[in-house]
Structure formats: structure tokens, C-alpha cells
Design a protein around this nucleic acid. Structure first.
Length: 823
RNA sequence: GCGGAAGUGGCGGAAUUGGCAGACGCGCUGGACUUAGGAUCCAGUUCCCCGUGAGUGCAGGUUCAAGUCCUGUCUUCCGCACCA
């Protein structure tokens, strides 16, 4: 028998598929329903890792399955090709970022082709290509024209290793998401996208995404961080100023004993000017402002504050309260000023305790026995208002709207909804990104580069040296230009865009990847999108997935598209780990996909990675598991070739002539069809789909010597190959042709379950006594309930157990079990 | 602290609607074939005091019946974290 040799046959079929263009997708095929399956495109680091292999294997199974089910499937691939590593390579190895990036992409495409993935390569998208970033710039201008892009001076997160600023979403526990260096604060004029305008929609529309994991939705929910509360305006009589605080607990307002401003609050300067301790306070402010994210949020960092010497008036009761400055108040959130209620807020309790500030109880527990002396921490539960003027006696929850009404009536406050989400900082002081298409003219101010002049191309005369900030600023040919409005001398913006902008719309570009008149044609995009199934890592739960939702909503409002959520179903795959931790160079536990494919072939690699764990869970790499997958494919190879002669007769099964054993094999076959179809389509449980195919193969082996009907052999072999085709596309294609079948197996129709074949004549019923299995009963599946009860209770072993006991009742679950309850 | 997910054999994992716990694979044990096998095929493999036994992190509860539902609790992982 010919040996299974994947190295030869995989290459052969990859070339054949390419030649025949069997994965080329045509837009809008009449009579076919569309299905868009997409894996998150990779950063072109140079080599595929196992995480990629897992990601693409999952997507490819779905794509192939849907194609066989008759859908018109869009399954494209591309590269998120801008970003820091290309620049680092330029600095380190003196190669141009473009050369490095394109060489890496070529290599990764070669590796992807080696995996036998069914992409339509005609739709390849590379975000660093001028034909793509031209439209990224165009979309920036769409945002700008809608007032959703603006430049402002702000305290930004700065990564001193990457020499650039970062968006909030890109700071992970005080560190840079890419290089893990500590993030520091820096005041810079930066471009922002107004994602906060969409905070409420982004939050509410999470409900429109039943196909997303709850985990991701919860994370986005928390990230957006909506809270309902009130603004309260406090007068500062000595300075003729007002300060507004934001609070979610206006019901505690009579308990305010102090107020705290953020160090950056604009009023601070005025309040402390000329005070004897002004210098000390300014030192304190400076220190707080320069505190890194890590210092600020570490558990050890104490709440620290200083008194400004000024007092504000509580509008509710006229109380005079001291104004403090403290490190725990964030300028960016709310109004940058908070009220202090030590008795009903734990943080305030600690702060007041440390600095000896007053405490006043305004909410009491059910017994009304709350006393300051007995308290060891703030009382944050609900209760009844006391010491609260006209509101005393009210339930505190009910007092909240009442007290806000009072504020509005007396013009010293109002209702307010607040979000934790901040605007998206998109400027990057780097070279390898899409230039922000803006020109600064002394006469005309900020001017957009006219559409006809796009793209603003990256210059080639750039030197890469370590530590250089904004390489574009050093390129005179780039910076100096003429104003599009007045024709006078002007300067270009030298920042580039966050690469997350490029990846916020690439999935739309695939639909119409070669359009040179627009980012895409509206009708074509609307015909393909939203993406039916998106697959990627959980690490993008907030970042890419939130940004993409935002882009989709803005582009819809701009009339460019007609859908408001980009991804209908989301599958977040787990990591590939080895020896208990994530594969990484530093741990030396990396397994190279190319090596595995070289040794066993892509079919084995794909099969193992899909079989070893369900997709959402982390997957422990196992060399022995790979051997198992390899053995299984060899088993398939041998059993199919064993029956080659019978199969070539190409007969259909004559159901009327089947023996009992043949019937059983055919039953297993059709149960497998049902199970595999359900596992792929409804559950994305590829591991159990594969295990049931293995069971089918085992059953085929078991009945190998039964002189099976040629029709049944043909049916079993054909359907087996079809079921396995999405997982291991090469071996199934090879066997398909060896058996004399015509056309590509990947163009064939998915097998249908014959439900009449899945019914067993005789079934086994479990017989329990008091819930414990005591016997089993083989009966016809047609047996009536009463008959079943009777037969079960008359089993000799059961009779022994029930003899002399009272039978209280008999539970009967059809097709499954009988439970006799005795006493 | 808040929010989320998960705890099942030696290992990866299965049990979809409350109905035989451990499918499938790995590993291990034995057999067959063989000059030989680390190939292949077949069989066995939760544990123990080996029976009317125990068993899905732990302690309770509901039910004829619980890995699955309820209450409490422990552990691990992940996300957010002075957000007022």
C-alpha cells in the first residue's frame, strides 16, 4: 500500500488549488447566501507562531464548512503592517522599515500558504501600502469634518522606550502594551478622536451582540464605565469663584466636611497664590503630577493631601468646608474635584482620619444606632437620612432624585452622567504609520490635506537613530509644504496615526480591496458586512474591538455604510501554552509551526491544534498529541485505501439489504454527520467534532472484515472524507481523487444526515433502584412505557432487590432509563 | 475592593435539556503479527478495603435522580482598579 506522504501531496494540492482559483470569491452571487468569516490579521513580525496557526485553523474550518454548505464565503487575509518593530529593526539593523515589513509579509504569506488556508488572496490588504493608508487618511478627514477629530494640549501617557504617547487603552497596569516599559506623564499637543461622543451607544449596543462572549462585553461595559450622579456647585466666597464636583452620592451631601481638588485643577493656582506655604504646596503639586501610573496606582501609595487655606460653602446647608489638594483625585475624571464625606465613603474615611478632618453621620442603619465612636470604617450601605435638613427621614435611594431636583431648582447643580472612557489619543511620534493629513499654515491655521492630494506619503529621506522623537519632523522634504488654501508656506503635521486606526476598518476594505476611487463601494460593503464570524485573541477585548465598533458607528452616521456593528459573532480563542506558560523566546518553550508542518504536514498540525482543546480555552502543546493526530490521519489513509476497489465501483447503499451490523455502521455514520454538523455550526466545538469522526473511523475498522455491501462502503468512505475535509484539507483531497471522485472535495456538498438511519431497532435501558444503576435492559425502541416498566421490574436481579419492599413509584424516561423507588 | 471565568482519572479533555460520570486522544499494561519493532491490529486502563463500596475543589440543600439547579465556602486564572 502506498504510504501517506504529506510533504509531497500538500504542496501538490496547494499549487493545484491556486491554479484553479477554487478559493476566489465573487461578490453578490445570485441565489447564494453570503457568509463572512474573518481571523484578526497579524502584525508582520516575520514568522507565524502557534497562536496564528490556531487562529487560522479555526477560521479555515468554518470557511470550508460554510462553503460546502452552499454559502458564498468571504475569507480574506492581510497584514496590520505599520508599527514600532519595523522602526526598531531600522535602527538596529539599518534596513528600511518598508523593506523589513514587506520581506516579513512575504515570508508569512508563504507560511500561511503552507498551512493550506482557503483565503482569497486577491483581496490581500496591507495597511502600510499607500493604496491603503490613503484611505485611512481619507477616513481621518471624515472624522475631522464631523468634528470628531481634534487637537488639544493634554497630559498624555508617554512610553520613553517607544518614544511616543499611548492611548489609555494601551496602558496595561501602568506599562506600555507593546514593550512593557513604565509609562510616564507628559504634556503635549495631541490629536484625539471623540470616542466619548459614542460612549452611550457603544454601551447600549452591547445588547445587540448576543453572539459575543459575555466576558468581552463585560470588559467593554466596565471600560466605558457609565455612572449616574450629579454635579454640585460650591461657592468660594473669598475668591468669588465656583467649584463644581461630580458625585454619585448626592444623598450624602449634608455629610460633606471637606472638598478635594486634583493637583492639575485650574483653580488651585489662584487659591494658593501668596500663601505663606505656597512653595511647599507647589512642590507637592509637582510631585503628584509627575508620579508615574505605577506609583499612583500601587497598593502602597498613601493618600496624601495639603490644605489650600481656602473654604467653600455647601449649598445644601451653608456649611463652610476646607478645600484640599490630594493625589487620589484624578483631573481627567468627572470635574477634577470631589466632595469629602468621611462617614459614607471609605476613601474619605481614611483621608479624614489621616488629616484629622471632621466626620458627620447623615445616613443611619435600620436600627438607627450608628455612632461615630462605634465606626471603624465608612457606612456605605443604604439607610435613612439623618441630620439632612428637609430630607431627613427619607430613604437615601429615594433622596437622590429629590436632592438633585433641589439642586436644579436652586441653580446650584444638576443631573449628570459620567463615563470612565476617555477620548482616543491617536497621535504617535513615530515614522512607520499613516501620516495625519493635516497642514499648519500661519495664515489659515489647521488645514486638511485636500482629498486629491492623498495619500500624504511617508518620505524616504529619513534617518533612524535611537532615541529620536518624531522622525518625520527631521525630514525637511516632508515638513515644508504649501498651504492648500492660500498657497503660502506651511508645515505638515509630523505625527502619524495609532496603528489601531488602520485596523479599525480593514475588515471593510476586504469587501472591495482594490477600489482606487474610495475606501470601498458602499453597496459591496453592505452586501458582505457585518462579519458573520470573527476570530481572535482575547487581548483585543477592549482595544481593537472597541475601536472597530466606534469606527463602524461613525462611518454609518457619515452615510458610508449601512450597519452599526462590525462583528455579529465573536470567538475569542485561548492561548497556546507549553509547560504551563505562554510560548515565548525568553522561556525557551517555543514550538515552531514550520518545523511541525515540515515533519508531519499541515493537516496533522491543524488537526492536533483543533482537537487538543475547545477553541476558547488555553491549549497545552503536546508533542505526543501531535503524534496522535498523525496516527489518526494514517489510520484514515489506510482504511480508505483498504476499501479503494469497492469504493471505485461508486455504488449507492441499498438500505433494504443491510445486515444488522451494516445497519449499525450506517447508524454511526449518520449520527456522526449530525454531530459534526452541529459541533461546527452551533457550538464551534471542533474538538468533539473530531472525536466523533475518530469514533466513526473506529467503527469502520471494527466492521472491516464483515464483507460489507459495496454501496455502504462507498457511502461511509465518501462521507467520512467530506466530514474531515474542513479540518485536514490535503489528505482528504488526495484520497478523494484516488477513489476516482471528480472535482475538488472542497467544492463538494456537505453530507446530510439521514434521520431514518439513526434510529436503533434495539436500545439499552438503564434500570435503577433508588437512583442507583442495578441492571440494564435491551428492548425494542418501540416498547411502550407500561411495557417498559413491567419488563424492568420483572428482571430477576431487580426482583431480588425489590422483594418484600414497598414500590412507591416508578419513574420512566423514554429511551433512557427506569428508576424504581422503594422503601 | 469590584467584575468575570474555571476547578472532573496519571495527562489533554467529554457529558448540548437534571437521566449510565470519564466519550475521544495521550500515556501505561497485555495480546496478535513479526528475525525485530519505537510500525500496525486487538483488548484493558477513575479509585479502593473489590461490593448492596466510594467518586466531578470543600460543606450543606432541593430532587425518584445533581458534574449540571440552590446556599455558603476555598483555590486558580483573567479584566478593571483611589473613577468620587
Amino acid at each position: 500500500m502506498e504510504k501517506y506522504c504529506p510533504q509531497e501531496l500538500e504542496k501538490k494540492w496547494q499549487e493545484q488549488w491556486d491554479k484553479d482559483g477554487i478559493y476566489t470569491t465573487i461578490n453578490n452571487v445570485p441565489g447564494q447566501k453570503k457568509y463572512y468569516v474573518l481571523e484578526m490579521f497579524p502584525y508582520p513580525s516575520g514568522n507565524l507562531h502557534m497562536g496564528h496557526v490556531r487562529n487560522y485553523s479555526i477560521g479555515d474550518v468554518i470557511a470550508r464548512f460554510k462553503r460546502m454548505q452552499g454559502f458564498n464565503v468571504l475569507h480574506p487575509m492581510g497584514f496590520d503592517a505599520f508599527g514600532m518593530p519595523a522602526e526598531n529593526a531600522a535602527i538596529k539593523h539599518n534596513v528600511k522599515p518598508a523593506d523589513w515589513t514587506y520581506a516579513n509579509m512575504d515570508n508569512m504569506i508563504r507560511q500561511q500558504k503552507q498551512m493550506g488556508l482557503s483565503y482569497d488572496w486577491n483581496r490581500l490588504v496591507q495597511t502600510c501600502h499607500p493604496d491603503y493608508y490613503r484611505w485611512t487618511q481619507y477616513l481621518f478627514e471624515v472624522f475631522y469634518k464631523k468634528g470628531l477629530a481634534y487637537k488639544k494640549k493634554a497630559t498624555a501617557n508617554w512610553c520613553d522606550s517607544c518614544k511616543t504617547v499611548l492611548a489609555n487603552e494601551q496602558v496595561i497596569e501602568g506599562r506600555c502594551w507593546r514593550c512593557d516599559s513604565p509609562v510616564i506623564k507628559k504634556d503635549l499637543a495631541q490629536w484625539f478622536l471623540k470616542i466619548t461622543d459614542y460612549a452611550d451607544t457603544l454601551l447600549k449596543d452591547l445588547d445587540k451582540l448576543p453572539g459575543w462572549p459575555n466576558r468581552v462585553k463585560t470588559m467593554q461595559h466596565n471600560w466605558i464605565g457609565r455612572s449616574e450622579g450629579a454635579e454640585i456647585i460650591f461657592n468660594i466666597p473669598n475668591f468669588k469663584e465656583n467649584v463644581t464636583v461630580y458625585t454619585t452620592r448626592p444623598d450624602t451631601a449634608f455629610g460633606i466636611t471637606y472638598m478635594v481638588l486634583a493637583a492639575e485643577h485650574p483653580l488651585v493656582d489662584k487659591l494658593i497664590k501668596g500663601r505663606p506655604d505656597e512653595a511647599q504646596i507647589r512642590d507637592f503639586i509637582k510631585r503628584v503630577h509627575n508620579q508615574s501610573e505605577i506609583e499612583r496606582t500601587s497598593d502602597k501609595s498613601e493618600k496624601e493631601g495639603m490644605f489650600t487655606g481656602a473654604y467653600a460653602i455647601n449649598p445644601f446647608n451653608g456649611a463652610k468646608i476646607p478645600i484640599w489638594i490630594a493625589n487620589y483625585v484624578l483631573f481627567e475624571y468627572g470635574t477634577g474635584a470631589v466632595m469629602g464625606v468621611p462617614t459614607h465613603d471609605s476613601r474619605d474615611w481614611m483621608f479624614a482620619g489621616k488629616y484629622g478632618l471632621d466626620k458627620k453621620i447623615v445616613i443611619t442603619d435600620k436600627e438607627g444606632k450608628l455612632t461615630l465612636d462605634a465606626m471603624t470604617d465608612a457606612y456605605v450601605d443604604d439607610g435613612v437620612l439623618v441630620n439632612s435638613g428637609e430630607f431627613s427621614g427619607m430613604n437615601n435611594r429615594k433622596a437622590i432624585p429629590a436632592m438633585i431636583d433641589w439642586l436644579e431648582k436652586n441653580k446650584c447643580g444638576k443631573r449628570r452622567i459620567n463615563y470612565r472612557l476617555r477620548d482616543w489619543l491617536i497621535s504617535r511620534q513615530r515614522y512607520w504609520g499613516a501620516p495625519i493629513p493635516v497642514i499648519y499654515c500661519e495664515k489659515c491655521g489647521t488645514v486638511l490635506v485636500p482629498e486629491k492630494d492623498l495619500p500624504v506619503r511617508l518620505p524616504k529621506d529619513v534617518k533612524f537613530d535611537p532615541g529620536v522623537v518624531s522622525p518625520l519632523a527631521h525630514s525637511e522634504s516632508f515638513v515644508n509644504c504649501t498651504c492648500p488654501k492660500c498657497g503660502g508656506p506651511a508645515k505638515r503635521e509630523t505625527d502619524t496615526m495609532d496603528t489601531f486606526i488602520c485596523s479599525s476598518w480593514y475588515y471593510m476594505r476586504y469587501a472591495d480591496a482594490k477600489n482606487d476611487k474610495a475606501p470601498f463601494d458602499k453597496d459591496i460593503v453592505d452586501s458582505w458586512l457585518p462579519v458573520d464570524q470573527y476570530i481572535g485573541g482575547i487581548e483585543h477585548a477592549i482595544l481593537h474591538l472597541l475601536y472597530s465598533r466606534f469606527f463602524t458607528k461613525v462611518l454609518k452616521d457619515a452615510g458610508l455604510i449601512n450597519f452599526d456593528e462590525p462583528f455579529t459573532n465573536l470567538l475569542t480563542q485561548g492561548m497556546v501554552i507549553k509547560d504551563g506558560s505562554k510560548m515565548s523566546k525568553s522561556l525557551g518553550n517555543v514550538v515552531s509551526p514550520e518545523e511541525i508542518i515540515g515533519k508531519y504536514g499541515a493537516d496533522t498540525a491543524r488537526l492536533f491544534i483543533l482537537f487538543a482543546a475547545p477553541p476558547e480555552r488555553d491549549l497545552e502543546w503536546s508533542d505526543q498529541g501531535v503524534e496522535g493526530a498523525w496516527r489518526f490521519l494514517n489510520r484514515v489513509w489506510r482504511i480508505i485505501l483498504h476499501f479503494a476497489e469497492e469504493i471505485k465501483e461508486n455504488k449507492t447503499t441499498d438500505v433494504s439489504l443491510l445486515t444488522a451490523k451494516e445497519k449499525e455502521l450506517r447508524r454511526v455514520l449518520h449520527l456522526t454527520i449530525q454531530k459534526v454538523t452541529d459541533d461546527i455550526a452551533a457550538r464551534s466545538n471542533f474538538n468533539t467534532a473530531i472525536s466523533s469522526i475518530m469514533e466513526l473511523v473506529n467503527a469502520f475498522y471494527t466492521s472491516r472484515d464483515e464483507h460489507l455491501q459495496a454501496g455502504l462502503i462507498n457511502e461511509t468512505a465518501t462521507d467520512l472524507l467530506l466530514l474531515l475535509a474542513p479540518f485536514s484539507p490535503h489528505i482528504t483531497e488526495e484520497l478523494w481523487h484516488k477513489l476516482g471522485k471528480t472535482g475538488s472535495i472542497h467544492k463538494a456538498a456537505w453530507p446530510k444526515c439521514d434521520h431514518s438511519a439513526t434510529v436503533a431497532d434495539e436500545i439499552e435501558i438503564v434500570v435503577q433502584v433508588n437512583g442507583k444503576v442495578r441492571d440494564k435492559l435491551k428492548i425494542s425502541s418501540q416498547t411502550s412505557r407500561d411495557d417498559l416498566k413491567k419488563q424492568a421490574s420483572e428482571l430477576p436481579h431487580i426482583k431480588e432487590l425489590t422483594n418484600g419492599k414497598n414500590i412507591i413509584k416508578i419513574i420512566c424516561v423514554p429511551q433512557k432509563l427506569v428508576n424504581i423507588v422503594i422503601k
